[in-house]
C-alpha cells in the first residue's frame, strides 16, 4: 500500500469553468520524496488541500496510508503534517509558543519528538521568544516545518516551501528534507523551481491541472525525444531571433547564458550547426550537444499537444 494514492481526481471552480485538477492520478511510495513540479495555477495547492482533507474533490478517490480522504478524514488529520504555501502560524505567538501549541493540539509534547526537529529547531532557538510574525522568510519556513513535524507525522505535505526564498535558504531546506527522509517519513513537496526536481526520488510535472509526466528525474531526462544543443554568441538576442526564424530549427529558447535548440533533422546535428554558424557568422559563436534538464523536458511537454492551446499561446 502506497503512502498516498490519487485516482482520477477532478476539482473545478466557478461552476466548472476553471478546471483546477483534471483527472489526476499518481502514487507516493513509502519513504519517498515525491515532487509536484509546476507553475502557479497548475493545480498543486488544490491537490494538497484534497489530500489533507480540507477540500473535497468532485470526482475520483484519494487515500493517505490506505485511509480515504473523505471517510477517514479524522484519522488523516491526526497523522499527517501539512505546511501550506501561505505562512499559517500564529504571528502574535512567539516561536516557542507556536511549537508548544501545535504539540499540544496533537496531544504530544515537544520533548517526545524533539530528536526529529532538533537539527532544524536549533537554528531558530536563539529567537524562541520572538513573535513568529517578526521572523525573516527563511526562519519562518524553518519554524513552520518544525510545527508540521512535532507530532511525528507518517506523511509530510509541503506546499511550495521554498517559493520566494533565496538560493541559500532553499539549499538548506532541501538538505533538511534529505535528513527527514532517512527517518522514513514519506514526503510530498511542490515547487515552481524546476532545478529542485532533481533532488526528488520521483516527480510529477503538472500544468493547467494536467499531469504531463510521472517518473524519476533521470528517466524524464532520458526520455527527451530529440538531441538538445546549446549555442551562444556575443549578441545572444540577435542569435535567438535568427535561429527562431530559421527553417532548420525546430525549437529555440533562452536558457541562462546559452540558447537551447532542437533541429528538424535530428540525425545530422553537427553538420547543420556548422551550416548555421557559416550562414549567420555570429561573433564568438559556440555550439555543443548537451544533456537536457527537467526544465527542458517541461518546456517540451508544454509545447506539445493541446496544452499549448490551454496555456494561452
Amino acid at each position: 500500500m502506497p503512502a498516498v494514492t490519487l485516482k482520477n481526481i477532478v476539482k473545478t471552480y466557478d461552476d466548472g469553468k476553471v478546471k483546477a485538477v483534471n483527472n489526476v492520478s499518481f502514487d507516493v511510495e513509502h519513504g519517498e520524496l515525491f515532487g509536484l513540479i509546476g507553475p502557479d495555477g497548475a493545480g498543486k495547492t488544490s491537490i494538497f488541500r484534497i489530500l489533507t482533507t480540507v477540500l473535497l474533490a468532485e470526482k475520483g478517490s484519494a487515500a493517505v496510508e490506505g485511509h480515504d480522504v473523505v471517510k477517514d478524514y479524522r484519522w488523516i488529520r491526526n497523522k499527517v503534517g501539512y505546511m501550506p504555501g501561505k505562512f499559517s502560524l500564529y504571528q502574535d505567538l512567539t516561536v516557542a509558543e507556536n511549537l508548544h501549541f501545535f504539540a499540544t493540539i496533537f496531544n504530544t509534547t515537544i520533548e517526545e519528538n524533539y530528536d526529529l526537529i532538533k537539527d532544524i529547531y536549533d537554528q531558530i532557538k536563539p529567537f524562541s521568544n520572538r513573535p513568529a510574525g517578526k521572523l525573516s522568510g527563511g526562519m519562518k519556513q524553518k519554524l513552520a516545518l518544525c510545527c508540521a513535524l512535532i507530532h511525528k507525522p507518517v506523511v509530510l505535505f509541503l506546499d511550495e516551501p521554498t517559493t520566494g526564498v533565496d538560493v541559500v535558504s532553499r539549499k538548506e531546506f532541501w538538505d533538511m528534507l534529505k535528513r527527514l527522509k532517512k527517518q522514513h517519513i514519506s514526503i510530498l513537496v511542490s515547487t515552481p523551481y524546476m532545478d529542485e526536481a532533481s533532488l526528488c526520488d520521483r516527480i510529477a510535472l503538472i500544468q493547467n491541472g494536467n499531469i504531463m509526466s510521472v517518473d524519476t528525474p533521470q528517466n524524464i531526462i532520458d526520455s527527451f525525444p530529440a538531441h538538445l544543443y546549446a549555442a551562444r554568441a556575443k549578441d545572444i538576442y540577435q542569435l535567438l531571433k535568427n535561429f527562431r526564424a530559421d527553417q532548420a530549427i525546430e525549437s529555440c529558447y533562452a536558457f541562462g547564458e546559452y540558447l537551447h535548440l532542437t533541429l528538424k533533422d535530428d540525425d545530422n546535428g553537427d553538420a547543420i550547426l556548422k551550416e548555421l554558424a557559416a550562414k549567420y557568422n555570429p561573433e564568438d559563436f559556440e555550439a555543443k550537444s548537451i544533456t537536457p534538464t527537467i526544465e527542458d523536458s517541461f518546456i517540451r511537454l508544454m509545447e506539445s499537444g493541446e496544452l499549448k492551446v490551454e496555456s494561452g499561446k
Partner: peptide, 24 residues
C-alpha cells in the same frame, strides 16, 4: 521586482523577449 515569480518556464521566456525588446 521579481516579475516572473511562479510563472511557467515558457511564459517566463516570452516575458524576457519583452524585456529584450524594451531594452532594444
Amino acid at each position: 521586482d521579481e516579475p516572473t515569480g511562479g510563472v511557467d518556464p515558457v511564459t517566463r521566456r516570452q516575458f524576457w523577449d519583452l524585456i529584450y525588446e524594451a531594452a532594444a
